[in-house]
Design a protein around this nucleic acid. Structure first.
Length: 138
DNA sequence: GCCAACGTTGGC
DNA sequence: GCCAACGTTGGC
């Protein structure tokens, strides 16, 4: 089974990477968007997930992995929504700001740029490789 | 704080 | 089922 790559957005004032690292694991709940739900449901255990700080920072700061596949979101009062569990793997040695992503030949086509309101999105292997290169990982 | 983008809702 | 109005997100 091929590994897939994803990116999730989070406002640092809401749940920053540092808090995520401290917790060691988090239920990714509260997603109320059909496109994002589709992506959550496509996640497999072990998939890599880039962690992006929206609004404040506007940069990719770390790498997480999926530790539990989609299950009914316990925070949803009504409707058919999904959550997954994520665990932090490591921070990027150099965070990758949106300005750099927009200026990069490979990364400028990311959903992050094209669909600015989507909170969970796939990342192509080429984009992932470039992101890790810029993040000084590996 | 403003505003553009865009997803969702509701009237017809 | 279409489309205008509305609400939310998120960059600037």
């Amino acid at each position: 089974m091929a590994q897939h790559y994803w990116l999730v957005k989070q406002e640092p004032s809401d749940y920053a990477w540092s808090a995520f690292e401290k917790d060691g694991r988090a239920a990714w709940t509260g997603v109320r968007n059909y496109a994002a739900r589709l992506h959550l449901r496509a996640m497999a255990v072990g998939d890599r997930v880039a962690y992006y700080h929206s609004n404040e920072g506007k940069e990719v700061v770390g790498v997480a992995q999926v530790v539990r596949t989609a299950y009914p979101d316990p925070t949803a009062d009504e409707g058919d929504w999904s959550a997954v569990d994520l665990a932090p793997l490591h921070p990027l040695k150099a965070s990758v700001p949106l300005t750099v992503i927009k200026a990069d030949k490979v990364l400028k086509d990311m959903a992050l740029v094209k669909q600015s309101r989507l909170s969970v999105m796939p990342v192509t292997p080429a984009q992932w490789e470039r992101l890790m290169e810029l993040g000084k990982v590996g």
